[in-house]
Design a protein around this nucleic acid. Structure first.
Lengths: 156, 156
DNA sequence: CACAATTGAATTGTGAACAATATAATTGTT
DNA sequence: AACAATTATATTGTTCACAATTCAATTGTG
């Protein structure tokens, strides 16, 4: 009967990790579904929007630097950036100092999208969360700490 | 100069929604990277592992019922379940009472994987989070509430 | 200077995720 | 019973996400 285990009280804490991961996973999808109709009005997907947020903050970053900020690698970013270039939101140019690097810069259209994005997205998101600012800040801080623990665990 | 806005203090609360969403999104990826080497030893991907968790809890569910528990639709689940069937973890059979439904049942191999999964996954996850049980429970509860708000916002 | 090691992007292949559409079975209505 | 609406699954096409590999440019070392 050794393999005929029933639910035991000792399993409950162990299941918490699984449950938390699923909560994160499914909340990410829920967020995506909220963002989608908003970002459709800008012609962006959510990962593309993240790239725009990064570039609006600091233009002219390399693919590597964008990847560091978003925790994404070139296998994800290269095709994504090519699509954004085809949509005329950004330009990709080889760096003159270091020919290995590709520098990503906003086009006028991409830079101009910022104000429209700012007026559409954040208010709707804030509303959809149904959270107070204090709750949002609390959750944000705890998730960042958790993410750092997880990333550290993968390294070590 | 109307479009030459600078960072204003009023933007900070508005950016919290964006920041929270990115924290959720990037934490989901971080979790995935922690799970991957563990699930590789079981021959499962994370979404496949979620299906197994659901079936270990209650075998013989329809595709629809699995989708309700995981917030996924048939466009995602059908190919995923076909891959799991090809790996002999599950079987897919049309229901006799309602020929529209496909009932998913564990194979002996799939059912047998449970104990191995239980010994490998939860302890490693718990460790990687670096959180106390109280912190995990707190975060889990808050994320579930947030997810429900977001899902409600998409419906209405 | 030569050349091995490293770095930054790109490429290839697999597996999600989801919108939109299609198809077949079931249910509801008259 | 006929047939319109609904339901459950499957299919198609697009976009991530990432491991593994490739390739060219740069850096480090003798």
């Amino acid at each position: 009967m050794t393999s005929m285990r029933k639910k035991s009280a000792a399993d409950l804490p162990l299941q918490l990790g699984n449950q938390l991961c699923f909560a994160v996973y499914s909340t990410a999808h829920a967020f995506n579904r909220v963002y989608k109709p908003l970002l459709d009005r800008l012609g962006l997907t959510y990962p593309q929007y993240l790239v725009m947020l990064v570039l609006w903050e600091r233009d002219g970053l390399s693919v590597k630097e964008i990847g560091e900020r978003l925790f994404l690698d070139s296998g994800t970013l290269t095709p994504l950036l090519k699509r954004m270039e085809a949509l005329h939101f950004i330009r990709r140019t080889r760096s003159a100092e270091d020919e290995r690097q590709v520098i990503v810069t906003l086009t006028a259209q991409g830079a101009g999208l910022r104000d429209k994005a700012r007026s559409i997205v954040p208010p709707a998101i804030l509303d959809a969360t149904g959270c107070s600012l204090a709750e949002l800040a609390d959750l944000h801080g705890k998730l960042v700490r958790l993410r750092e623990h997880l990333n550290a665990a993968v390294e070590g």
